[in-house]
Design a protein around this nucleic acid. Sequence first.
DNA 1: TCGTTAAGATACGGCTCGTATCTTGCTAGG
DNA 2: CCTAGCAAGATACGAGCCGTATCTTAACGA
Lengths: 198, 198
Amino acid sequence: MKRRTASRRRGEELEQAILDAVWAEFSEVGFAKLTMEGVAKRAGTSKPVLYRRWSSRVEMLISCIASRIPKADAVPDTGSLRGDMVALLTVARERMTLIGQTAMLGMLAEVSKDPDVREVLLGGLASELVNLLYQVVYRRAIDRGELAEEHLTPRLLRLPTDLGRSEFLLFGTISDEAIDSIVDEVILPALRARGAAV
Amino acid sequence: MKRRTASRRRGEELEQAILDAVWAEFSEVGFAKLTMEGVAKRAGTSKPVLYRRWSSRVEMLISCIASRIPKADAVPDTGSLRGDMVALLTVARERMTLIGQTAMLGMLAEVSKDPDVREVLLGGLASELVNLLYQVVYRRAIDRGELAEEHLTPRLLRLPTDLGRSEFLLFGTISDEAIDSIVDEVILPALRARGAAV
DNA sequence: TCGTTAAGATACGGCTCGTATCTTGCTAGG
DNA sequence: CCTAGCAAGATACGAGCCGTATCTTAACGA
């Protein structure tokens, strides 16, 4: 545990060093074997320092991922709802792949009892995509005249992320063919059924 | 650990006593706190006896659930595909509720690395529902003339279970309203889009 | 300069893991 | 009926990790 240098890190510098260590440890040993002791050791610090910041490894990992995952704030404008939808699911795949199937399931499992933490996890990762869907993809489609606001329902707002997540949690990946079939066989028909011209 | 009686159980009798203990322990303390030691204690036996049969708590729990969960071999014939579909999702909800959200996520997480064990888990639980969907619900619809074989795709065969599981893994339950919206806003439109008269 | 804060080290009891060892009850083959 | 073998069951072990308490000391701020 003893660090080589005599200097003592604090605040932001320390925080970043820890999060780096979390990520390194996570990448190397995986979610199941990610331990507070391992992270402390790798970061050259000690467990109390970690517990002063996070009360569990899940919270710590969520912080780490939140600081590492690229913000999902843009989806290329492909000129059609279908194209945009494929692009959105591709973004979703990239984000989830960064975390990994096992870690995602593990985090969901550890978090499933605690609605507060669950909100943080889902709010930080999934809802960003939902917002993107609603405020970018669907809005563009409305502007294009493919869609009207009243065609949308809560279920249709969740559908793309639900199907993407479901696919990923089961198989650990989302193939291009899967994206196509999700869009062409499910999402677009569901929108058309409510009157959309997509 | 010492049992009261002098008798020594063996074979099937012992196996059942252990599985009973697993279920009791699981129901009482939940998945996260389910330990080999706890089960051994409750069953009045010892860890080596458990490890001779299962190599991990997940395998043990899967055995337990497989022996306890009712077989999904029937869905009431409601006279319409819509009604049957709602009934199927209701069956799915009951089965998943028996296991619980946290346990389901936990098992999936621990099993996600090992494709073999995953097959056992999903094959024993999910695919039973998929078969039911294909061999009962869809078949009836075909007989009624609501549907034709060529309207179905692999995606449409998975869609109902995917959406049900997704809902359950996120919320820990599936409300009646959720079932309705899944059926009416997603599944049926997707079938109609391929030509079905449902 | 000096008091406050937090880093970092260490140690603790506790739990669970997975395995090894040993005795002993049960059972099947003769 | 006897005996040999097998598995049940008890126990103990080192290991790892948990979460917390305690202590020293470096860094910072007023």
